[in-house]
Amino acid sequence: MSGGAVSVEERGEGGPPGTPVLEASAVTKQFGGLTAVNDVTFSIPERSIVSIIGPNGAGKTTFFNILTGLYKPTLGRVTFDGKDITGGRPDKIMKQGLARTFQNIRLFGTMSARENVMVGQHSRMKAGLFGSILHTPGVGREEKRAREKAAEELEYVGLKPNTHDQLAINLSYGDQRRVEIARALASDPKVLLLDEPTAGMNPQESDSLTAFMRRLRDERGVSILLIEHDMKVIMGVSEHITVLDHGEKIADGGPEEVRNNPQVIEAYLGKQAAEGH
């Protein structure tokens, strides 16, 4: 355990102030002999925007995958809303209110934007096999509501109505990112995990996404966990930042605190830069 994290533990909690909605305690993930994530403790308070940063290969996405159930942690616990979700199935975790996007966009290419968002509502819908075959009035209503909700979410993320029925694969890159966020939001999550959402965006698009994240938090009360490389976005939007390097948490704190932490500078720029600081 490195020094930066100790100071946090002395405070007696693994993260920023506020009631935590998602907590990871002492999470470790090993692939064979490689330790991708080592003893990371972390939490997201309600209605907040927090970030995980770190150099490439620091274990950020692996940590994301542990939170969302794609990987089982080797050690440690993940609790969401007071319930233990360690190693739970991804769809069950999603259903409890933890939605995500992917670093490399993973939309369903042959479905329209609207259908993609409707898949996001899967866990909130009830139509089963027989209901779908018989198309009972309840199923019909549910389907209609799902379509309307999909349109609302798409407009909320800024997609014009004339693009709703285009196939996802034919949308522009920025629109695909937006559809992915809309698909995650369609389940009305409590926590939204965004994996490098501004990758490939120009500065204006990044700015508008930053504003959008704040809007999400303030209007819908969603907590956002962000993995990002764009420091302008990170420093501008995060209330709390956790820094990973080689799978370990080397620092966490507010943007200023992290920016001036010598270990963080070392991780990003090398030892000399840290000493010269």
Partner: peptide, 26 residues
């Protein structure tokens, strides 16, 4: 009926990308 239903969409989703589908609650 199944093709144009919630289930039909879920099938297309998991056919194209199981990880994304399960992360979306399927």
């Amino acid at each position: 009926r199944l093709r144009d239903s919630r289930l039909g969409r879920a099938w297309i989703a998991l056919r194209e990308d199981e990880v994304a589908a399960s992360s979306m609650g399927v």
